[in-house]
Nucleic acid binder design. Sequence first.
DNA 1: ATAATCAAACTGACTGATCAGTCATTTTGC
DNA 2: GCAAAATGACTGATCAGTCAGTTTGATTAT
Lengths: 202, 202
Amino acid sequence: MGISLRRKETSERRRDTILHAARTVFARKGYAATVVEDIAEEAGIGKGTLYLYFPSKEQVYLAALLEDARTLDAESRGALAEAPSWRDALRRYVEVRLSYFEAHEDFLRIYMTEFRGMCMQGRPLSAELYRLAQDGEALLAQRFAAAAARGEMRAADPELAALMVSDVTRGLIERRLRGWGRPVSAGDTAFAVDMLCRALER
Amino acid sequence: MGISLRRKETSERRRDTILHAARTVFARKGYAATVVEDIAEEAGIGKGTLYLYFPSKEQVYLAALLEDARTLDAESRGALAEAPSWRDALRRYVEVRLSYFEAHEDFLRIYMTEFRGMCMQGRPLSAELYRLAQDGEALLAQRFAAAAARGEMRAADPELAALMVSDVTRGLIERRLRGWGRPVSAGDTAFAVDMLCRALER
DNA sequence: ATAATCAAACTGACTGATCAGTCATTTTGC
DNA sequence: GCAAAATGACTGATCAGTCAGTTTGATTAT
């Protein structure tokens, strides 16, 4: 019993090690160019061992994404819960996402590049990932709807408003990543938030 | 001479056939999953023949994108040139891009999925494609700057404003493509344009 | 304390499949 | 009759996933 527990611990730690390595390598080389052995090497284990923890390359990839997606979702929820007004909610939403992606550039890089592409290829990948990807927007939409109902902001289509906020945020993030085009500064973020607030003002 | 001219004509037509086929197949299966033979088959030629017209799979891919990117750029320019006010420019910009992508879903699918991913992988692909991808936004930014200088709209950062318009447009397009999430209607587009105008009003 | 045992964990050489690009040969149409 | 165009079988490289063999370390026997 004590034994099996210790076993479980080290086994989970190893799983994490693999996921961490996978994020690093996938982020650096992209999904297609990453070879499973690269991940194993980065994790300091043999290729065969990796397959004891995950059934396929794709599952490693999705698991790496999922973990981060869950954390980001939790942080988004926290930020929105604390926001007193819809303006605060909007600002926090943008800020929390920008800072999360800044602190987890690996995740960002993977998410932005391949996952979205895979999504659009229509391949059914992970129901939970799809859900998490939408939950952030849905949460913001709820806040907007409540505020609109209270007459605090423009009443038209809170859902689409949330989607717009989300799109602008994604734009800010992507532009920070991309090697070309205008890099986005902190001031730009404030400006974008301000513009979005204006658009939604009563 | 007459001969070489006719040769040139058919040769260019064949090139176009290949590009057309490539768009279809890349759009359906994605870059990685597409096999060069698929493209050749779709074009009704042998694989070897394809390599007489293009040096590599990647170059076929980029050429297919480039052609559409040029057309889209031209249409965007036309639309913006005719717009009397900055509001019209904004609306037309969104509309022309949405309708272009709607009429060329293949292009859209390729562009949205793989090209942007490749960009973010930092691989140097095609200077002209990079330029074209930015030109649309730059043009809109110019219009905004001129309008702002004339005091017709809010004077703050026309460039970032154009980026935001571009991001929202992209969001509308992507949501129309993706199999999940809220599908975007024509009314949504009008709403988004309206919101963006409000954000930029004096 | 030390050795023997054994199952679970680990490993990396191997396999089968895939595919970009080539080139010796065939076809076309002038 | 011939040069340009077209072809598709072939090659070499790559890689996901497997599995026969090795290591580890906990447990039991001496």
